[in-house]
């Protein structure tokens, strides 16, 4: 519970309600919900295009955007994730949570946490592309628009999380 912890967080239901309103606004203004991983793909293509343009064009997955001759960074998700960064920073600054640290359970070392973080990141990055979106884009926005894909994503992500939770409990509790 929040009361056990040093930092006070917003009431989760209030946060959820506000997030829902933001998502509603997103649909009202742009016709699409929230998202994150699509932006990472675009950042990545933008960088790859600078360092290895030939590779990007030959790659079916990355090259599709290039072939379509679109400006890879002129996309709402790209700006949205930029906003997420600023928003997170503002909230952290307001509640005095700005510190450089590697956060980990006291039962594991910093090194273990770092390895777990990078492995988890790789898996999430891979999965988000295969599943056409991450927790926010595929799961959250998918649910809000009542698409079947959103509910499948929700069940698959949380289901697999619970399924594997036992094996990685040492990392967290």
């Amino acid at each position: 519970m929040d009361t056990n912890n040093a930092t006070k967080y917003m009431n989760p239901y209030l946060a959820g309600f506000l997030l829902g309103l933001i998502m509603l606004a997103a649909y009202y203004f742009t016709g699409e919900g929230l998202g994150a991983s699509g932006a990472f793909k675009r950042y990545e293509i933008a960088v790859l295009e600078k360092i290895a343009p030939a590779y990007v064009e030959s790659n079916h997955f990355f090259g599709a955007h290039i072939a379509a001759k679109e400006n890879i960074l002129e996309n709402r998700l790209v700006y949205m994730v930029l906003g997420v960064f600023f928003g997170g920073f503002i909230s952290g600054a307001v509640s005095g949570r700005l510190t450089f640290k590697v956060e980990h359970s006291p039962k594991i070392t910093k090194k273990t946490r770092v390895i777990a973080a990078i492995v988890g990141g790789i898996l999430f990055g891979y999965g988000s592309q295969m599943g056409r979106g991450c927790t926010s884009g595929s799961g959250l926005s998918g649910m809000a628009s009542l698409s079947l894909a959103g509910f499948i994503a929700l069940f698959a992500i949380f289901g697999s999380g619970y399924l594997f939770a036992y094996f990685f409990r040492k990392l967290w509790i």
Partner: peptide
């Protein structure tokens, strides 16, 4: 033929 990835990872 190479398919376009469409909105892949459109999250």
């Amino acid at each position: 033929a190479g398919k376009k990835a469409g909105g892949g990872g459109g999250c």
